[in-house]
């Protein structure tokens, strides 16, 4: 699905990613953990196409295409979805209208007909139920006046509407209470299939009790320094990141 090779990236001449390698296949869930400042959100932003970063080396292949050459919107249309750590409030733009536009732009890109009003509304009903998002919230201005939990549920609602091939969840769990976390995780698990993949970026192991990863990676100082099965997350939870730093020094 996605292959990241030796990725180096700078922001304002400061190196953030320093040779990151990662391969995610269809049907897999990967968790990326790591201390603050390791480059987790940078990785998410670069994959989604944020323009503030300079890629100095490496490559990213998404379904065989050169992802880094694609515009942000084309990445989304090809099936990449980023659930934002801080979803943006957009006053005056209704969630529903913007999602209809997004779905139709994607369909046009894939050479399909626009979705009918009836099908669209049925989809909204079905998918808002999935994340227990009040229908009223679905039609309000994008994220405006939403609580933290509502914003994150709205991200997963949008993900459910857009049915991406690859979903990247950027610290979707931070700030969520346990009920919201369950709802969000349930949404992600329901959407999971053999044909799509998920990258879960998180600070806390707790989320991984609900979204069980196939692989856990530790991102530290701009590189993946350790990978393992889901038990690695528990070890990190227990011991923190210092032992990994020590291992690196020894090596």
């Amino acid at each position: 699905m996605i292959t990241i090779k030796n990725l180096h990236a700078n922001i304002e001449d400061k190196a953030i990613l320093k040779g990151l390698n990662l391969e995610v296949k269809a049907g897999e869930v990967h968790a990326i953990m790591g201390p603050n400042g390791a480059g987790k959100s940078t990785l998410a932003s670069i994959l989604a196409g944020k323009e503030d970063y300079e890629i100095t080396e490496g490559s990213v292949s998404f379904d065989g295409e050169d992802l880094l050459e694609m515009e942000t919107e084309d990445r989304a249309r090809e099936g990449l979805f980023l659930a934002f750590q801080y979803p943006v409030e957009i006053p005056g733009v209704s969630n529903i209208n913007f999602l209809r536009t997004a779905i139709n732009e994607k369909r046009e890109h894939l050479g399909e007909d626009p979705i009918s009003a009836k099908d669209f509304m049925a989809l909204v009903r079905e998918k808002s139920k999935l994340v227990e998002l009040d229908a009223k919230l679905a039609s309000r201005s994008v994220n405006e006046g939403f609580s933290g939990g509502e914003k994150k549920r709205n991200e997963i609602f949008q993900m459910a509407m857009l049915e991406p091939k690859l979903a990247i969840l950027d610290e979707t769990d931070s700030g969520l209470d346990i009920d919201a976390l369950r709802i969000v995780a349930n949404g992600v698990n329901t959407l999971k299939s053999d044909n799509n993949a998920t990258i879960v970026i998180t600070h806390y192991q707790r989320l991984l009790d609900y979204i069980v990863p196939d692989f856990v990676h530790v991102l530290y100082d701009g590189r993946i320094v350790k990978s393992g099965p889901k038990e690695l997350a528990l070890e990190l939870e227990e011991k923190g990141y210092d032992w990994i730093k020590e291992e690196l020094v020894e090596a």
Binding site: A48, G49, K50, E51, E71, T72, E73, R75, A76, R77, L82, F84, P87, V88, I90, V93, F98, L99, T101, A102, I103, E105, K106, H109, V142, Q158, L162
Partner: peptide, 8 residues
């Protein structure tokens, strides 16, 4: 950026 990341 947010809207573009959704495909607009």
């Amino acid at each position: 950026y947010y809207l573009r990341a959704r495909g607009l």
